[in-house]
Simulated assay, not measured.
Amino acid sequence: MAAELPVPIRFRLPDGWQAKDPEQVGADDVAFVALHPESQQPGSTANITIDGDYRPDPAALTDIADESVHNIEQVAETVTVTQRSELGSAEAPGLGQVLKFSTVINEVARELFQCQVYLSMLDTENPEQRVVLRLALTANQEQFTALMEDFQEFVASVRPDTDSGEGM
């Protein structure tokens, strides 16, 4: 079963991206997946994913980003953080990082890049409840370069869905 986000959000997918059921593409640990069919190459289709959870602990976004690096290290041959920077504001902090990693997919070694953006949100009804969302673009180098602008557009569109009548 696909993961669920702890808070409702809304966003806009750039043209050329198609939402897919996470379970159908083998991504049960995320709440949302979009593929970019035009970028498909043997063994590699660029994708955007969203996952997130309540984080009542005091972990900084850099610590949470380090956790992601560690998780990828469990399945990749090598992982390098090529870039990391703070984003947003004190009221809505964020962190972005770019990872380069080597992994084996269908018995073929692949070099992939992943841009992760972490967004921290406080529940307006209960400010003690912090949610951290992770938005990620994963692609090979050619796809990554070509689709980074799409991903930036996507990230800029993410908002709490205050019209849903839930939580935030």
Rank of each mutant, 00 (worst) to 15 (best):
A2K: 03
E4V: 05
L5M: 05
P8L: 01
R10H: 05
R12F: 04
D15G: 11
A19N: 00
K20L: 09
P22K: 02
P22E: 08
E23S: 08
E23A: 13
Q24V: 00
Q24H: 04
V25R: 01
V25T: 03
G26T: 06
A27T: 02
D28F: 01
A31N: 07
A31G: 15
V33S: 04
V33H: 01
A34I: 05
H36P: 05
H36L: 04
P37S: 05
E38F: 02
E38Y: 02
S39E: 12
P42T: 06
G43H: 02
T45K: 00
I50K: 01
D53C: 02
Y54A: 10
P56H: 06
D63W: 06
D63V: 11
I64A: 08
I64V: 12
A65K: 02
E67K: 12
H70R: 14
E73Q: 15
E77W: 10
E77H: 11
E77G: 12
T78A: 08
T78E: 11
V79I: 12
V81P: 11
T82E: 15
Q83F: 11
Q83S: 13
L87F: 13
S89T: 15
S89K: 04
G96A: 14
Q97M: 13
S102V: 09
I105Y: 10
E107C: 05
A109Q: 14
R110T: 08
R110N: 15
E111M: 07
F113N: 13
Q116D: 12
Q116V: 08
V117M: 05
S120F: 09
D123C: 07
T124F: 05
T124N: 12
N126M: 10
P127W: 08
Q129H: 11
V131G: 07
L135C: 07
A136P: 05
L137H: 04
T138I: 12
A139W: 00
Q141G: 14
Q141Y: 05
E142Y: 00
F144Y: 14
T145N: 14
A146N: 13
Q152K: 09
A156Q: 11
A156V: 00
R159E: 14
R159Q: 12
R159N: 07
D161Y: 03
T162Q: 09
T162A: 07
T162I: 07
T162Y: 07
D163F: 05
D163N: 14
G165I: 03
E166Y: 00
E166F: 04
E166H: 03
G167N: 07
M168W: 03
